[in-house]
Design a binder for these strands. Sequence first.
DNA 1: CAGTATCCCTATCGATACTG
DNA 2: CAGTATCGATAGGGATACTG
Lengths: 119, 119
Amino acid sequence: MKEKNAIEPVCAVDYAFKRIGGKYKGRLIWYLYNHEVMRYGELRRSIKDITPKMLTQTLRELEEDGLILRKVYYEVPPKVEYTLTEVGMELIPFIQYLKDWGNKQLEKSNLPAIEASCG
Amino acid sequence: MKEKNAIEPVCAVDYAFKRIGGKYKGRLIWYLYNHEVMRYGELRRSIKDITPKMLTQTLRELEEDGLILRKVYYEVPPKVEYTLTEVGMELIPFIQYLKDWGNKQLEKSNLPAIEASCG
DNA sequence: CAGTATCCCTATCGATACTG
DNA sequence: CAGTATCGATAGGGATACTG
């Protein structure tokens, strides 16, 4: 069994994929890019069928990876805003590219691509 | 329970991520881009610790998605060559971008990025 | 409003052995 | 050489209920 914190050689491609992989990360980043700033409930309503657990979990991972910023307003009722960081913004060109590519493939296969659900 | 083949609205970002997600797909595409054509055993040796099961499985998925081409030579001993398709090639700019981004992040965090293991 | 806490499931991945 | 076949492990995700 390998040690968990052993420093191992890392492939940059793998590294990057892990940082943006996961079921909702791509969409989350894309939403935040298009809306600049979004609150928790707003994100929750945007991503159809996501559970609070998954939303919180995904947001925390993105935050730990330095891709998004979480700003808490200490008031009642609570208010939390999420925005992309500089580093997170650097991923936009690539997600844009991927989105265009995806749409092109979807057209070819006659599957419906719903723009609205992508931000 | 949802029907498996029901046509549902699809988000292009999600769609694209599924097509290139998975533990080895990014690297596999990147290898094939850099070597143009590779045989099964060559890929197996390149991707350290991948099992034949995972390699075959991943290659088949990429093939079904039209990203790679599998060419069989009917001779003894068997020979099979893998190459990127046109559609697969369209992903290169984006993987390149992601790789550069990954390397930049790795530098910042003082983790070792091994170029060799990325193609 | 913005989350936690639990419990559970299954897709994905891994180890090992075998084959046309 | 280029794979299959089988079984077992686990990480990621989902349902539901509850809270500061």
